[in-house]
């Protein structure tokens, strides 16, 4: 009788611990996913218009600058229009999920491009310039509490995403990223992104205003993105189509 009670007690204890472990793991995964969603909302509204300057800095200090106007809607639609320099003015890029196109006014028609290419040269590639929400592209594989920051281990949802894995440090107070390491499927570090200089963009949006990147593949080179204006904006789905690409400037 006593033996039976003891066996039941041991079984219940193991079951309780096992269930507690499962729930704890689920809670941790849920926390990571929630944190990643919060990171997205803290970086940008779901639908917005934005002005950015992109600067490529060469090892000798010389620079090349681009100014872009972008609009984004939901998790999978984004358009960027080049306003400067004159040689790039009027070019626009469209992203719908993993599809990307480039429109060049002289060419007069959109051509498909890939996320790994770069329409501006330097360290930023097309997926950096047309970045969707992190939670739209990545699942949270793990989360580590590092005191003042969380370390999120993110895995690409499909192999069409430019970086297979991200290692994202998130500031606990502001829930915005501070550093993101981007890895290829082979495990090679492709680039590191640094979010800097928090700024109040109005309408309750306080986020880093500078994004820097460097890469072991481009030794000595650096690229910087400066955010100047981010506004919520209601946009029709039809704006994110090939037929509209030549008219993006009319949205401003």
């Amino acid at each position: 009788m006593n033996n039976r009670l003891t066996r039941n007690t041991i079984f219940m204890t193991i079951l309780t611990f096992a269930l507690a472990g499962v729930f704890a793991m689920q809670a941790q995964a849920l926390d990571g996913t929630e944190i990643l969603s919060q990171v997205d909302r803290n970086l940008q509204p779901e639908s917005y218009e934005m002005y950015r300057k992109l600067i490529n800095v060469e090892p000798d200090g010389s620079k090349k600058e681009f100014v872009l106007y972008s609009v984004k809607k939901g998790q999978d639609k984004m358009v960027a229009l080049f306003l400067s320099p004159a040689s790039e003015k009027g070019r626009s890029t469209l992203r719908l999920n993993d599809n990307m196109w480039l429109y060049i006014p002289n060419v007069g028609k959109p051509i498909r491009i890939t996320s790994l290419q770069s329409v501006v040269g330097g360290v930023f590639n097309n997926s950096d310039i047309l970045r969707l929400d992190y939670s739209a592209e990545y699942d949270v594989n793990g989360i580590t509490d590092e005191g003042e920051t969380y370390l999120l281990d993110l895995k690409a949802k499909t192999n069409a995403i430019a970086y297979d894995r991200l290692s994202m440090k998130v500031d606990k107070k502001t829930i915005v990223p501070t550093t993101i390491e981007c890895y290829a499927a082979s495990g090679m570090l492709i680039k590191t992104l640094y979010y800097k200089e928090p700024k109040d963009f109005g309408d309750g949006l306080v986020r880093p205003s500078v994004l820097e990147t460097d890469s072991p593949l481009y030794k000595g080179y650096k690229s910087v993105m400066i955010y100047a204006k981010i506004n919520k904006k209601e946009l029709a789905d039809e704006i994110f189509s090939l037929n509209y690409l030549s008219r993006v400037d009319e949205l401003r």
Binding site: Y51, V67, V210
Partner: peptide
């Protein structure tokens, strides 16, 4: 002339 480092005068690009 070259522009100063990391400045962004948005007025220049208003529609």
């Amino acid at each position: 002339s070259a522009q100063d480092e990391f400045t962004f005068d948005l007025e220049e690009f208003e529609k």
